[in-house]
């Protein structure tokens, strides 16, 4: 290896760098000269062929060359970056970004999760139950007589009887889980139950034979109706916003006494009256009340030892109001153009 070798390399490098017009080419030159198996590295490899006495000097020169080429390339890069606007490698940065494909959780489950989280933050736990239920858990245990007009709102799908045992049905509400939990546990209880329920309704824009409910109940010594009001007020404001108003109307449910229907001020018209709320300014949103003593009796709790409240609401109705969805069938059609919006 001689000075000439070095000079030739230096000259060639300088010329090539000067003639470069793109960052890409410059990148190639960087590899050509400076990479682990590049030209300069090759010269270093040859250093042992040189006489031992000249080696230190040679090394020095090589290092200087490497330094010089590196600096030259860096400088050129800087120059190209600042001056070059029309690089051949330019991309149209206005073209669409490549979106990662993200799946979406179903809007009903999303809503159920949000709602349940409000309750779990208040100290409730989530419990679920089976969709195929017994007549006792769905009706009798909940103080709903089998032959009484109070059952009419709970039209029910029955399962074709197998040879033996009791009558089974598809639960018409999530309340059977009250019976299941209370039969196996003693208070204190604070439970929220999301789930799917069934009623033989012909399907149209506002009816579905399958829908979802969220049930909640709280049982202990000294649970009061005012607690029910407080919990639901907190829940509804969390879900629909601070500015909604809530009202309790007396109602009748066989499994609660006293019972109430709960309305919120219409979220569409803010209470002024519109077609969604039937010009009333109020939207019926859930049913609630103090658990009927007969229910406690049916699960084997000592009379009047405990009091408790329970409430239940339809998830689809809440989702429809919250998101302005006008057809309940959309939830079960599963059109991706619908699902991906939430």
């Amino acid at each position: 290896m001689s000075n000439i070798d070095l000079n030739q390399v230096k000259l060639a490098a300088n010329t090539e760098i000067d003639n470069t017009s793109s960052l890409k080419e410059l990148g190639d030159l960087r590899i050509k000269y400076l990479a682990r198996k590049g030209i300069i590295a090759g010269l270093f490899d040859n250093i042992n062929k040189v006489e031992a006495t000249s080696r230190p000097e040679c090394g020095k020169q090589l290092n200087a060359l490497k330094q010089e080429v590196t600096e030259k390339i860096n400088q050129k890069a800087l120059q190209l970056e600042t001056t070059q606007t029309q690089d051949a490698g330019a991309i149209d940065i206005t073209a669409d970004g490549i979106l990662p494909i993200l799946g979406k959780e179903h809007v009903l489950h999303r809503l159920i999760e949000d709602a349940c989280e409000i309750f779990t933050n208040l100290g409730f736990e989530i419990v679920t139950g089976p969709e195929v239920e017994t007549e006792f858990n769905n009706f009798t245990g909940l103080n709903i007589p089998l032959e009484h007009p109070s059952r009419d709102t709970f039209d029910t799908f029955y399962i074709e009887a197998s040879k033996s045992n009791q009558k089974l049905l598809l639960r018409s509400h999530t309340s059977p889980v009250q019976i299941r939990v209370m039969k196996t546990r003693k208070p204190p209880l604070a439970v929220v139950v999301p789930g799917r329920v069934y009623r033989p309704d012909a399907v149209d824009a506002s009816h579905s034979f399958m829908f979802h409910q969220i049930e909640g109940f709280c049982v202990d010594k000294n649970i009061r109706f005012s607690d029910l009001k407080g919990v639901l007020n907190l829940f509804l404001k969390n879900l629909f916003g601070e500015d909604i108003k809530m009202r309790f109307r007396p109602h009748f449910f066989p499994f609660t006494e006293p019972s109430a229907e709960v309305d919120i001020s219409c979220i569409i018209c803010k209470g002024r009256g519109c077609s969604v709320c039937g010009r009333k300014g109020w939207l019926e949103i859930l049913g609630a009340g103090m658990i009927h003593p007969n229910v406690f009796k049916n699960v084997g709790y000592e009379a009047r030892r405990y009091t408790g409240f329970a409430f239940g609401m339809g998830v689809e109705r809440i989702a429809m109001l919250k998101y302005g969805i006008d057809d309940i069938r959309l939830f079960f059609e599963n059109d991706l153009r619908f699902l991906k919006q939430f």
């Binding site: 546990r185 209880l189 709280c218 607690d227 009001k229 407080g230």
Partner: peptide
Amino acid sequence: YDNIKFSLPVISSAARV
């Protein structure tokens, strides 16, 4: 019903299983 005030139940930690 509307004249009944809001309160919150004290949920004992024993309620969570």
